[in-house]
Amino acid sequence: MASIQNAVLDLKNLDLLANGNSAIHRLDARAKVLITLVFILCVVSNNRYELTTLLPFFIFPVVMISLADLPPLFILRKIILLCPFVVAVGIFNPVFDQVILLQIGPLGISGGWISFASILVRSILTVGAAFILVGVTGFTAVCQALERLGMPQVFAVQLLFLYRYIFVLTEESGRASRARELRSCGKKGQGIGSYSSMVGHLLLRTWQRAERIHMAMLARGFTGEFHASRQSRFGASEIRFVLAWSTLFIFLRLQNVSQLLGSLITGLFP
C-alpha cells in the first residue's frame, strides 16, 4: 500500500510542476493537448518493424522538457515505472518471430527483437509525452481542454471527480490497510478474506461520500450543469506552436530522417 501512496504523492508532484511559468506553461491547454495527440498518432502509426523512423521523434520530449524546465530525471523515473508492463507485452515477439531481418557481421537480429524494441521505444515516447503534457498543463486543465475540444461534459466531469477524490480514497485505503497490518503482527493476518471485506467497506464508504458530495452540490444550487469560469484564448502563439510541431511530426512520419541523415553522411564520405 505504501507504493500506492508514493505513486499518489508523485502524482501530486507532477501536478505541482504545472504551476511553472514558462512559455510552454502559458500556452492554452488545448494547443498542448492537440499537439500531444498528433505526436502520439504519428508515433504509433509507424510500421511494427520501424525503429529508425522513431528515433527522431525524441526531439519533442527533449525540447519540451528543456523549454518548460521540467526535471528530466523525475519524468524518466515515471516512464521506467511503466517499462515492466511494456516488456510483458512485447517479450514474446522474439520467440514467435524469428525471421532474420538485420545482419550485423556474424550477428543476425530477428524481426521479433526489432518489433520488441519498436514497442519499447514507442511506449517511452507516448508515455513520456503524456507525462510532459500533464507536467506542463496540469490534469484539470487537460480535462477542461478536452471538454472544450468537444469531449462530452459528462466524461470531463467524471475525470475531474476521479482526480479530486483519488487522493481522499488512497488516504482512506492507506489507513485501513495500515490498521490491518498493525493488528496482523507481521503475519498474514486473515489472508485474502480480510482484504475482500476491506474493499467492500471502502466501496460503501465511497458510496456514502458520493451521497454527501451530491448533497453539498445540491445545497449550492447544482442543477446538472457545470459552468466553466475559466477564459483562455487560442491566440497566435498557440497556432504557431501547433502548426510548427505538427508539420515536423508529419514530416518525420513520412520521411525516414535517420536514413536521410545516414545517406547524407555516407554520400559525403564515400
Binding site: L160, Y163, R164, Y165, V168, R212, A216
Partner: peptide, 12 residues
C-alpha cells in the same frame, strides 16, 4: 458540511 472534503469537490 462537517467534512470539508465533501464540500470542496472542484479542481481549485
Amino acid at each position: 458540511f462537517q467534512d470539508p472534503d465533501d464540500q470542496l469537490f472542484m479542481p481549485t
